[in-house]
Write a protein that binds this DNA or RNA. Sequence first.
DNA 1: CTGTATCCCTTGAGATACTG
DNA 2: CAGTATCTCAAGGGATACAG
Lengths: 122, 122
Amino acid sequence: MTTCSQSCGVGYSYGLAATLRIISGKWKPLILYFLLDGPKRYGELKRTIQGVSAKVLIQQLKELEADCVLARTDYKEVPPRVDYALTPLGRSLAAAIVPLCTWGTENMAEMASIFAERDSLP
Amino acid sequence: MTTCSQSCGVGYSYGLAATLRIISGKWKPLILYFLLDGPKRYGELKRTIQGVSAKVLIQQLKELEADCVLARTDYKEVPPRVDYALTPLGRSLAAAIVPLCTWGTENMAEMASIFAERDSLP
DNA sequence: CTGTATCCCTTGAGATACTG
DNA sequence: CAGTATCTCAAGGGATACAG
């Protein structure tokens, strides 16, 4: 390539900034990623995404819904049944997240040793 | 596909978690992305990434360096000259971030209206 | 120019208990 | 089952001033 300025310049960074605004949140990328597998119920997400509290999970789901990347369906049953699914927009976003997962998986060993060293410090 | 469980299951989510651990930080994805353009000096980064303070920029640069995704070069000159460049590992990570930028750019219009509506609320 | 050193402060997030 | 309501808190981040 001649220069990366066209794709990496300031003007285009707003694209990245916009994306970050949506996926910033400790569990949001994980949520989007898991939903690639298909619609999931609240409890299912809670169990799958280990460590997240009910409050924070709901909160982030609501924000993602407000951002139009996922849709909540209430089946109006008793006991309650609700599920969350990616919208078409959300699906495309989740697809853009997949490379991050791939990268992490491919470099997991290297990362593990780096983390180990870093965590051993004060 | 039969099911996405193989690629989206819990086991593989550690890959995403590992990646998130590295790029979590308000400006880190932006830093990595801009460095795709080539090595950059401290002041250059500071100017390019609008809104970041000196303290936070240095802090995140150091963390990225500790994670072995970027390398700092001190030219030992006066006045001081230093630059930051992606390592091979960092370059592959930055490449995985590019789709996020692309997504944001492609959906900028839609996002803008969503944000506008959301920001108008209390 | 490239950072350091403080101080301050918002925001995200966790724990717990409770409701329809 | 699927949330809601509080309370609490640390951590990340920002402003400012200063240093080599």
